[in-house]
Simulated scan of single mutants.
Amino acid sequence: MPPSHPKLLLIKRDKIGDMVLTTPLLRLLKEALPNCELHVLANDYNDWVLSANPHVDHCWVFPRIRHNGKLRLGSVWRYLKILLTLRRKNFDVVLVGNGSESHRAISLGLGLKGKRTIAYCKKTVKGLSDPLPEPTEGHESRRLLNLASALGINVGQAGVQPEFHPQASALHGAETWLKRNDLMPGAYLLLGLGARRQHRQPTAAQVLRWSQLCHDRFGLKTALVWSPGTRDNPLYPGDNELAAEILARQSPHILPCQDGLQTVVGLAWLARCNVFPDSGLMHIASACPGGVVGLFADTAHSSSPDMWGPIGDRQVTLVADKAVAEMADEEIIGAVARLIANTVPGVA
């Protein structure tokens, strides 16, 4: 067992969705060890997920030391300075926040010189006090929760609902966009196009039909968001071509939004319902009051919702055999109807 007032550090330097899936573990640690001092080591593109998290006492932010393949010397200096500061904190426990073995993260955790270091690991690593056998199945969020078992915490009944609270700037951006488009909170569905692989995206024809059906059946407009940029960009592929094809039809029910990530996050929070392909925003939306319909496809060759899908009681996950383009309209609209029936606008 840890001391009565333990100082804990959780390392989580992955993408936005990975940080969202870590929030049930943060809640469990604080509930099981209410006197603990809980720190998180994040990076400068996922730390905002925890900006209003009530369970985190301090969030340390590692800067990206490379951008577009180039080393940023100023970031290297800040990185080393934070590393030294964390070592001096003398943490009682360092948890490597990965649901599977990560040699890089384990090396970082050991380098912080905590009294104990907890991580999934397949073989003996010098200095690793609490190696846990890597799970062979289960959702990433449940795998992360299981790290707490090394502290004697009962994880069997732990809740998996992800937790997120938007920043004031995100809500302000969303409210500004809504006012500009003469919309009220809860009067629209937020539909995202962004996906790492094209087979996980809806087609333009599907988006047009879904928006018409959501308007006819639920009285909702569709706020359309997408990753800016062209499809052939090797570093940051975007969805401009698909968005342009949709908007060219000039549907009165579709309103485009390209006001930046935080405005999109605010819109997800205020939406009556969200629909997103597998992405970080899908996980953000699963923690929002209206919930999310998560779209997956070809799970034999890409991520499976069994491990990486939205989790909790505000989500419906749909899986196509080969591509989202195969999904029937009634399947999507039925999922939206289930979310609307089981969520309360504005109540997270």
Rank of each mutant, 00 (worst) to 15 (best):
K322M: 02
A348E: 08
S102A: 13
V324A: 14
A285D: 09
E163S: 10
C257M: 10
Q315N: 14
V76K: 10
I118K: 00
H199P: 02
L8S: 03
G238D: 12
Q258Y: 04
D14F: 10
S227T: 11
Q161P: 00
I311R: 11
K221T: 12
D130M: 09
P202W: 01
L339C: 08
L10A: 03
R78P: 01
G280V: 07
N233T: 10
L132V: 09
S251D: 04
C257G: 09
R87F: 10
K123L: 01
M307Y: 07
K30E: 07
G192T: 05
S141F: 01
V316D: 02
L270I: 01
H58R: 14
R104G: 15
L86H: 05
M307R: 15
A271S: 15
R142M: 04
E134V: 15
T85I: 03
H5E: 13
F218H: 13
L145E: 03
V155F: 00
G97K: 02
R217V: 11
S169H: 07
P162I: 03
I254Q: 08
C36Y: 01
D298L: 09
R66P: 11
P252G: 12
A335L: 04
S100A: 15
A335C: 07
A150L: 05
I82N: 07
G173F: 00
L132Q: 10
H39P: 03
M19A: 11
P289M: 06
G138S: 04
L242E: 11
T124L: 06
L247R: 04
A325C: 08
N146F: 00
A195G: 09
P252E: 07
M327I: 13
M19G: 00
P24Q: 00
L270E: 06
A170R: 05
V264P: 01
Q157S: 14
K81D: 13
L171P: 05
V225H: 09
Q250A: 14
R338L: 05
K15L: 13
D329S: 13
L110F: 11
G346Q: 04
Q206C: 09
P2N: 09
I153P: 01
V96M: 05
P234H: 00
V125Y: 09
G219M: 11
D130E: 15
I11V: 12
R338D: 13
H39N: 15
L29A: 12
M184I: 01
V292C: 11
L95A: 15
R88C: 15
P277C: 12
L112H: 02
D278S: 06
G74D: 13
P228Q: 03
K12G: 09
A105P: 05
P252R: 09
S302K: 06
G294M: 06
K126A: 14
G290W: 01
Q198F: 08
R196Q: 12
R338P: 02
K89L: 06
P305A: 04
Y236M: 13
R78S: 06
Q262T: 12
E137S: 15
A244T: 12
D232V: 04
T23G: 00
T117L: 02
S129C: 06
L8K: 01
D92C: 03
S227K: 13
V292G: 10
P3G: 10
G346E: 06
Y120W: 04
N274V: 02
S303A: 15
T222R: 06
P256A: 09
R197T: 14
I153H: 02
R27Q: 12
